[in-house]
Write a protein that binds this DNA or RNA. Structure first.
Lengths: 213, 213
DNA sequence: ATCGTAGGTAGACGCTTGTTTACTTGCAAC
DNA sequence: GTTGCAAGTAAACAAGCGTCTACCTACGAT
């Protein structure tokens, strides 16, 4: 329980002041500790969201002292921001030819259903929008990483509104997955689900058809 | 600020033990107090979600004492459940002919964008799934009020998966609205947005087309 | 008038949160 | 060795949380 594990540090981290020897791995390695904290934070924030995670949980999973979280990262919110800016999987999904964007988004969605350890990102989004202290952080992330890149690929009017409709699907996936579990969605044919989602994203993003009234 | 408002009670509440006179409105009216607490809870839970609301906030908005919240409703979670079971707007939206279901859902979505004091429900859903104590409450609500009614209207295989995809849109609306505000979505033509959402819901819910492989 | 009781209140309980303050300890240079 | 300093630790901080207990007080019945 309260025992401290000595082994299994991850990397030499050869930048401890004036370190010269190659394999020297000190028992006290700030860089490695920071990395363990960051990894634990990414893992836990992805699983439970901002409010669902305490700094003590992070410290425990990182096998580090509670005080180090704030000492190295300033505050819980700053650590959250650091985790967020480190994530950039969705960027590669959005980039590409505009015509294939709906299908790429759909495949990304399905991919998150299939593989168990999902990219922490989309799971962070839903449950973390509570406190005003992180709302701004989240807003910036979504704006820069999702909405604006999508808008850049859209032609025609109301590009922003269309991008927000697509974001609705993206952000709704988290709560649904978390509440209902993945088994129900996994039960269906993946190709079928992908086609459906592609159609949904297309409906959200496609240029407006001319309407007579 | 700390002053107590005497007037503006809402109803006579003619069931206070052996009350006989019609218009007698006591300064101490448990029924009215319960109603004020319930209204405040519905309002605040809808605005900030379960975790974002404290019983002290509820008591303050209801102009009631903090202890009364637990005395009358048992606990914060129980009050939350009461609020949830009292909401049933979405039920009327889902009921009707199956062919028009996507459009009814879309119109419901747009309606929530347009009118400012939205039905508290959909705004409660997103931010409230944190603690296990409410997860089950939420799950039951969504299952009984949304997923199962939708499934009942669907033909063909994978009805549950299709209903969950539609739920994704429904549940994604909350976070998007809360984070990005409504102005961006309101800026677009409502009829256009409704058409888009109808297409999105249709793509999620329609019976599968036969696929050759 | 008075009295019982239900409605309402103030305050504290125990707990958890994020954060900070002293303190100890390992490690490397001298 | 001894010393200096960064890394790490334990314990407390103030604030906020949901909840509960002991106490007032208004009001209908007597």
């Amino acid at each position: 329980m309260g025992m401290r594990v000595e082994g299994e540090r991850t990397a030499p981290s050869a930048a401890h002041g004036t370190r010269r020897a190659a394999d020297r791995r000190p028992k006290r390695d700030r860089e490695a500790t920071e990395r363990r904290i960051l990894d634990a934070a990414r893992d836990l924030f992805g699983e439970h969201g901002y409010d669902g995670v305490t700094v003590r949980m992070i410290a425990a999973q990182a096998e580090a002292n509670v005080a180090l979280v704030n000492r190295y990262f300033g505050s819980k919110a700053a650590l959250f921001e650091e985790v967020l800016t480190g994530e950039s999987v969705i960027r590669g999904v959005i980039a590409g030819d505009p015509a294939g964007l709906p299908r790429r988004l759909a495949e990304h969605f399905v991919r998150q259903i299939d593989q168990r350890p999902t990219t922490a990102m989309s799971r962070i989004l839903d449950r973390s929008a509570g406190q005003p202290e992180v709302k701004e952080i989240l807003l910036h992330y979504l704006e820069d990483r999702i909405v604006q890149p999508i808008i850049a690929q859209l032609d025609g009017p109301d590009a922003r509104a269309r991008a927000l409709l697509a974001s609705t699907i993206i952000m709704g996936g988290g709560p649904v997955r978390r509440l209902f579990g993945l088994t129900d969605l996994r039960a269906a044919d993946p190709a079928e689900v992908t086609d459906r989602l592609t159609a949904m994203f297309t409906a959200a993003l496609a240029p407006p058809v001319r309407r007579e009234m």
